[in-house]
């Protein structure tokens, strides 16, 4: 079976006026289906840049990124939208729910872009919100929910089109310990069902949920360790 993600000699250089920032330096990385990975590192280490590239939000300056065999650096913006829609579910630190729009509608959104029929959309959204324990709040607006609840809506939304990969960028960064635990449990169970989870964090207690930890510093991987007892 081919690798889900295959990254070779990846470089990302930001130009900010005359200043060049070399955010990623010759990164090589392979990720298989069903892995649970934590990417760690200090801010500015390049972990978020890598996350954006893996999430097809950004394109590398040089190097190769294959997602399920598709060369991402050669895709147009609208094709990238389609790939994000089908293959990747995002969970952000700031939740990023659409304001003034009820949570059912928020969860439906990726399915609207995937042109899923209205009745089916609604049914699936209800199922997902029930799965994250918010089945009784479908008509609430995001600002009526707590942080933990918002993040659960975000997870439900990320799962809408059953993507093979969940990308979570500091998903517990704005949450208290208890909510963080709950969210991580959800990720764990998703991973057990076969979804790959890649999360970016700088908290070791969050990273311990993962089976594989990759540590970044100055745009390069300095550590890539597999948890003991996990079958590769």
């Amino acid at each position: 079976m081919s690798k889900m993600i295959s990254i070779k000699n990846l470089n990302k250089i930001y130009k900010n006026g005359s200043v060049e920032v070399h955010a990623l330096k010759d990164v090589n990385l392979e990720i298989e289906h069903g892995e649970f990975i934590a990417i760690m590192g200090q801010s500015g280490s390049g972990k978020s840049t890598l996350m954006n590239i893996i999430g097809c939000l950004d394109r590398p300056t040089s190097g190769e990124y294959l997602l399920d065999g598709i060369d991402i650096s050669k895709q147009e913006q609208d094709d990238l939208s389609l790939i994000r829609n089908k293959k990747i579910g995002f969970v952000f630190q700031a939740f990023n729910l659409i304001p003034r729009t009820n949570i059912l509608r928020n969860v439906e959104l990726p399915m609207i872009y995937a042109k899923v029929k209205s009745s089916k959309r609604k049914q699936r959204s209800m199922e997902l919100l029930e799965k994250v324990g918010l089945g009784d709040r479908v008509n609430h607006l995001p600002n009526e929910l707590s942080g933990g609840q918002k993040q659960r809506v975000a997870i439900a939304r990320a799962l809408a089109n059953t993507p093979p990969i969940i990308l979570a960028d500091e998903p517990t960064g704005n949450l208290d310990t208890q909510s963080s635990e709950d969210i991580m449990e959800i990720f764990k169970s998703l991973n057990n069902d076969g979804t790959s989870v890649i999360l970016v964090t700088h908290e070791p207690e969050i990273a311990r949920f993962a089976d594989r930890v990759i540590v970044f510093r100055d745009g390069a991987i300095i550590e890539d360790s597999q948890k003991e007892g996990v079958l590769k």
């Binding site: 939208s81 990023n96 659409i98 959104l109 990726p110 089109n161």
Partner: peptide
């Protein structure tokens, strides 16, 4: 702008 960004990350195309 942020809302547009979120929608794009969820798969909205230019024409959407």
């Amino acid at each position: 702008t942020r809302e547009i960004g979120i929608k794009k990350s969820l798969g909205a195309r230019t024409k959407d």
